[in-house]
Design a protein around this nucleic acid. Structure first.
Lengths: 126, 126
DNA sequence: TCCTTTGTTCAATGATCCTTGAACTATTGA
DNA sequence: TCAATAGTTCAAGGATCATTGAACAAAGGA
């Protein structure tokens, strides 16, 4: 990456932008899977059930630009995490209720078990 | 109205549809104003600050079709209410967190004081 | 009855969205 | 150095979206 990936500052995250980002089934599923995975980071490659490589890249960018997730490049991979702290700080209770509601939705298919190498050392990332 | 207005059943309300409906500033403002007004119903005419007559009709229909609001025709008016019970039942805590978050957003302009005749007897409507 | 109020419908327009495949970049491992 | 991996970018496509003005419909009041 010549440019670092753009992430909005916490105080710039807007509610309509979040809703727009979550108003798509693929993206809502990404969030649901991320939440289900605890604090561990995940790579785009773990979401192939949800769409093509290109589509995922597109949707992940939307979530990032809306401020919902953080994307940290590492080698050829991108580690995705929910921006829990920022969202909780800005809209307390909102993310939890979204996750709780989203977890009642069926996922397209269960994900393959995570490769331990892919989540190593990711829990302390902010 | 030759047809009664379509409203999705409570169990048909989908999360992506709600997000899509709320992912527009005009519609989010409608919700914020409705919430701020307590349980009282409001008419489209009370939202003219948010857009043209035609635009409001469009956005109100979107919110209704997504299951976020109830629209009850009465004479030449339409009384709008949040579908609090249905949403709370289906996605507990979600609406409250949306309202709490949305209430931190500035509204385009303060609404004129409600005409008492317009809210008479509306609090028990479900 | 006629006029006003309130909101809907329609067609048109431009914008934005989502998906696709092909081509590309960057990094890693052999 | 060469090939594989992981993901991005681009252009094109069709679909949906939001806004506008003009015409319309339904109800209520004078």
């Amino acid at each position: 990456m010549t440019h670092p990936l753009f992430h909005p500052d916490a105080e710039e995250i807007s509610l309509p932008a979040i809703f727009t980002a979550l108003g798509d089934e693929t993206r809502l599923n990404i969030i649901a899977i991320l939440a289900r995975n605890g604090e561990r980071a995940m790579t785009c490659g773990q979401f192939t059930q949800l769409g093509s490589k290109t589509a995922l890249s597109y949707h992940v960018a939307k979530l990032r630009e809306a401020g919902v997730i953080n994307v940290r490049p590492d080698g050829t991979k991108r580690f995705l995490t929910l921006r829990r702290a920022d969202l909780d700080n800005r809209f307390p209770g909102f993310l939890d209720s979204v996750i709780a509601s989203a977890s009642t939705m069926p996922l397209p298919e269960s994900q393959p078990p995570a490769d331990p190498a892919e989540t190593r050392g990711e829990t302390e990332w902010t």
